[in-house]
C-alpha cells in the first residue's frame, strides 16, 4: 500500500526563473525566509493562476518551510486560491454597507448572467465568483473587484457592461 501512496502523492515542481527572481527580491526585506511564504504563494499564483499542491511543495522546499505550515498559511488567507480559478476572479463584496444597498440582488444578477454561484467558474473559464469581506469602499457601495480592478456604485446595467468588457478581452 505504501508504494501506491508514494506514487500518487504530489511532488514539488520546478519553480520558474521569474518566480525565483521575485521571491529572492522579497527575501531581502526580511531577516527570515519563512516571512516570505505568503508573498511567494502570491507570486506563484500570479504566474500560475492558483496554488497547486505541486506549487505549494515547491515554495515550501525553496524557502525551507514545513509544507504543512505553509499549507496552514495558504488556506488561512482569502486571496490564496488552492483550487483552479478562471481567468478573471470576481471578488464580490457582501459585507454590511454593500448589503444595505442591495448587493444580494446584484449577486443574483451575476449568477443569472454567468450561470455560476460563489466558488464556481464559468465553462469558458473566463470568470470565477468569490465573495469578499468589506472592500473599504462603503461610500460608493455596492462594490466589487475583477482582478486588480475596482468597480463602484454597481447597478445591474453596470455589471452587464463590465462582463461584456471582459468577454471582449477574451
Amino acid at each position: 500500500m505504501s508504494n501506491i501512496i508514494a506514487s500518487t502523492a504530489p511532488k514539488a515542481r520546478q519553480l520558474t526563473p521569474e518566480e525565483i527572481h521575485e521571491i529572492e527580491h522579497e527575501k531581502k526585506h526580511y531577516p527570515y525566509a519563512q516571512a516570505v511564504g505568503l508573498e511567494a504563494l502570491k507570486i506563484v499564483q500570479k504566474y500560475q493562476g492558483w496554488v497547486s499542491d505541486e506549487s505549494l511543495l515547491a515554495v515550501a522546499e525553496y524557502l525551507d518551510i514545513p509544507p504543512d505550515e505553509l499549507e496552514g498559511v495558504a488556506t488561512f488567507f482569502n486571496l490564496i486560491y488552492r483550487r483552479p480559478v478562471g481567468k478573471n476572479v470576481i471578488l464580490f463584496c457582501d459585507s454590511v454597507a454593500c448589503w444595505m444597498l442591495g448587493c444580494d440582488s446584484l449577486k443574483e444578477h451575476i449568477t443569472k448572467r454567468l450561470g455560476i454561484d460563489y466558488g464556481q467558474t464559468t465553462e469558458d473559464n473566463l470568470f470565477t465568483l468569490i465573495p469578499v469581506p468589506c472592500l473599504g469602499d462603503c461610500d460608493r457601495a455596492p462594490t466589487m473587484m475583477v482582478g486588480n480592478q475596482h468597480y463602484r456604485n454597481l447597478t445591474p446595467e453596470k455589471i452587464d457592461e463590465i462582463i461584456a468588457e471582459y468577454r471582449a478581452k477574451g
Partner: peptide
C-alpha cells in the same frame, strides 16, 4: 489592513 466593515 483596513477591513473593519464600513471603514474606508
Amino acid at each position: 489592513d483596513e477591513m473593519e466593515p464600513g471603514t474606508f
